[in-house]
Amino acid sequence: MPGKSRRDFLKSSALIGAGITGLSSSSAKATPKNILSPDRMGVLVDTTVCVGCRNCEWACKDAHGLPAGDLESYENRKILEQKRRPDPSALTVINEYSPGKYSNLPVDVKVQCMHCDHPACVSACIVGAFTKEENGSVIWDTGKCIGCRYCMVACPFQIPTFEYDKAINPLITKCDFCFDRTKEGKLPACVDICPVEALTYGPRMELVMIARDRIRRNPDRYINHIFGEAEVGGTSWLYLASKDFNDLGFPELGKDPAPGVSESIQHGIFAYFVPPASLYALLGGMMWLSKRRKELEQEEKI
């Protein structure tokens, strides 16, 4: 009888091993779409040009079916006295800061999703709802979302927001880079409406060149830093400014992609299920040996 159960044991262990190998081949594909196309688009935000008219806020709401109100009501600059963040009712907002080195006018900064080249949200999302598309947009499939809010924990720019007051179908919201508009060849709504051309839409690689060129030609106007060129491995949205980005409400971030460390840990632990399968085999071996030792002890007693 003990002999038989030992054979059973080996048989089932082999079966489990086979099962795990089968699993690993299918799970290798189980990652969301995350394309880093060389032709991906971006937007260059020149904060030295922006006048803080907030037309982009209106256009964004209008394009996303959010209550937008009259465009005229956005002329009221009182709201710029407080620092705001995007929320489910406004996917982009303008914040105003004290003047930089270039002029005496205040600096206005548009805030929205940066559309990272290596997005933390895409890596984090439990159901793989987020994707980085070929045109650079980081978008998400609301139908998959379970509302766990891990994307909000992961995002280095604190961008995704959540509808805490809805009991049924609360949404994660953020800027989607007007994915539906750009698909049809239209400009993102904010870029389209900007009256002073503070926003430039184009291939990210070219935008970096344009930004460098502007800094080189106007060293008095700009600080020598393109925010988003290197931060967290690069972002589709790039910023130029006349003062330090830390004083303009930008977080201080390194050059490593936000999901880099966690993904390498994750893949190290799993590595095609070899470590878990080895642990299973090791524990199985230990169990078998300790059982055998016990049996031998008992036989000796008899």
């Binding site: 990652t31 969301p32 439990i126 159901v127 993904e263 994750q266």
Partner: peptide, 15 residues
Amino acid sequence: WHPLIMWNGNSALFE
């Protein structure tokens, strides 16, 4: 139940 059929091998939360 979504994580059962919608997988993201990069996500620590999924694991």
